[in-house]
């Protein structure tokens, strides 16, 4: 098990990120602070290799019915939990790497531990 300290907790306030390069390759990883929880995501989009972690953050945009239906309301939940690739806008759940537009697609994520003020990424060698 490899353990690599990639950032200070104080460097990445909630809603912010740090991109660490290189990390197991030239693309690096993005360290995200989502509401106090830290996640590490590989900075390569599985769609077309775009620099995924430089994309914009958003939430899950949902509604049950088309807008022409009475009572339909569009909600945005979990704002900041979804990452949109800057190339072509595919969306990914930061905490799991799950792609919201293709259930078979995941971006690689790494386990993150907080050790004092250190943000530590771990992975199997």
């Amino acid at each position: 098990m490899a353990r690599i300290t990639v950032a200070r907790v104080s460097e990445i306030p909630p809603g912010q990120r740090k991109i660490v390069v290189p990390f197991r390759g030239r693309a690096g990883i993005g360290i995200f602070n989502v509401g106090g929880s830290f996640y590490a995501v590989r900075n390569i989009c599985p769609h077309k290799n775009g620099p995924l972690c430089t994309g914009t953050l958003g939430g899950r945009v949902t509604t049950q019915v088309p807008p022409s239906t009475r009572g339909g309301e569009i909600s945005i939940d979990g704002d900041g939990e979804i990452l949109h690739c800057p190339w072509h806008q595919w969306s990914f759940e930061i905490s799991t790497g799950r792609c919201l537009v293709d259930p078979e697609v995941y971006v690689k994520t790494y386990a993150v531990e907080i050790d004092g003020d250190d943000v530590v990424v771990t992975y199997e060698d």
Partner: peptide, 16 residues
């Protein structure tokens, strides 16, 4: 939108 930490890491991985 949050800060992306300057341009560090923003470079796409090209494969010419």
């Amino acid at each position: 939108m949050s800060d992306i930490g300057g341009k560090i890491g923003a470079a796409p991985i090209t494969a010419p």
